[in-house]
């Protein structure tokens, strides 16, 4: 029982991370129909900007460091959108974007290695406490991951439903041509969306830094599992991301109760393939994927 609850705790925390990852690429997918295959590297970059530059180099307090990292990543996202996403968006095959973003990811990793050095490091004392209730251990960082994910989702809902910018983003997501006809600048909108996505990446990078440490490979596994989470819930939708993320996080931990731990990563990908075969629209199952 204790194991079960303990695994549930880590399942939920990791589920929240997968959710954020799924949302982060879903917003770009919605806005442009493109999938960002370098998102894992963006998360890494976020972690490095926060841990490497803001904390270690400038010795900032956590909160201003976080805010500054978000700003830096937002600018980075806007530049990438201008330089890569917009030129590639008009090409007929999504192959170009896949490759373009993959190469971007490689470049980011090499730059990280050259700028911040090859050695992985830890942000000393950052969210490293634990809380113990009964026999169950709640690491402080898990609690923060859940809290920040919830806050973030609420903020995003308000942003998308109430503000003009959010409405324009949703408009472009549902139909680019119609949005353009309505006088929305689609290119600018995509730049904003990608920047927004980069900010989410930075949030993820900061949140996982205490668990994964800051390392050039830190986001490799969550980036691919984030795709699995999206598919399981419903690809490219916010609701689907939330459901899929939590489902993947929990089932891969529950699996540990019955099977050998070395196959844990297989669970997410098997779930991915099962869902693609049986129910490609995901758990939430709205049949809205016309674009592909």
């Amino acid at each position: 029982m204790e194991s079960f609850l303990q695994l549930l705790v880590s399942g939920i925390a990791f589920g929240c991370i997968y959710t954020l990852v799924a949302i982060e690429y879903s917003v770009i997918y919605q806005a442009s129909g493109l999938v960002n295959f370098s998102h894992g590297q963006w998360i890494t970059l976020g972690g490095f900007v926060f841990g490497g530059t803001m904390i270690r180099q400038f010795n900032m307090h956590y909160i201003p460091a976080m805010l500054l990292s978000l700003v830096v990543m937002g600018i980075f996202g806007a530049l990438v959108a201008k330089g890569i996403f917009n030129p590639l968006r008009h090409l007929p095959n999504n192959l170009f974007v896949v490759l373009g973003t993959v190469m971007l990811g490689k470049i980011i990793i090499e730059l990280c290695r050259i700028i911040w050095g090859a050695s992985a490091f830890r942000i000393e004392g950052f969210l490293s406490d634990t809380v113990k209730i009964g026999g169950i251990v709640f690491p402080e960082v898990y609690i923060w991951i859940v809290i920040i994910s919830v806050i973030f989702l609420v903020v995003q809902a308000i942003l998308f439903q109430k503000t003009k910018l959010g409405k324009a983003m949703r408009c472009v997501a549902s139909d680019q041509k119609a949005a353009a006809l309505m006088g929305i600048n689609v290119n600018r909108n995509i730049i904003i969306t990608v920047a927004y996505s980069a900010i989410i990446c930075a949030i993820i990078g900061i949140l996982v830094a205490p668990i994964f440490n800051v390392d050039i490979n830190m986001a490799n596994s969550i980036s691919l599992k984030g795709f699995a989470a999206g598919v399981v819930g419903g690809f490219g939708t916010i609701g689907g991301s939330i459901v899929g993320g939590l489902v993947i996080g929990i089932i891969e931990n529950m699996y540990l109760m019955i099977g050998p731990a070395i196959y844990k990563d297989v669970v997410a990908f098997v779930a991915l393939i099962i869902f693609l075969l049986m129910k490609p629209t995901g758990l939430l199952g709205k049949n809205q994927q016309k674009r592909s």
């Binding site: 997918y29 999938v35 999504n94 896949v98 691919l224 795709f227 699995a228 598919v231 690809f235 070395i262 196959y263 990563d265 297989v266 990908f269 098997v270 991915l272 393939i273 693609l276 075969l277 490609p280 994927q289 674009r291 592909s292």
Partner: peptide
């Protein structure tokens, strides 16, 4: 799977296949 799905979904299936293959070979 490609009979039912296409585009990015198919890409994700192939990624899943590659990862499963690697993990199985490793373990």
């Amino acid at each position: 799977p490609s009979l039912r799905i296409k585009g990015i979904y198919l890409t994700l299936t192939t990624i899943g296949f590659g990862e499963i293959m690697r993990l199985l070979l490793t373990n």
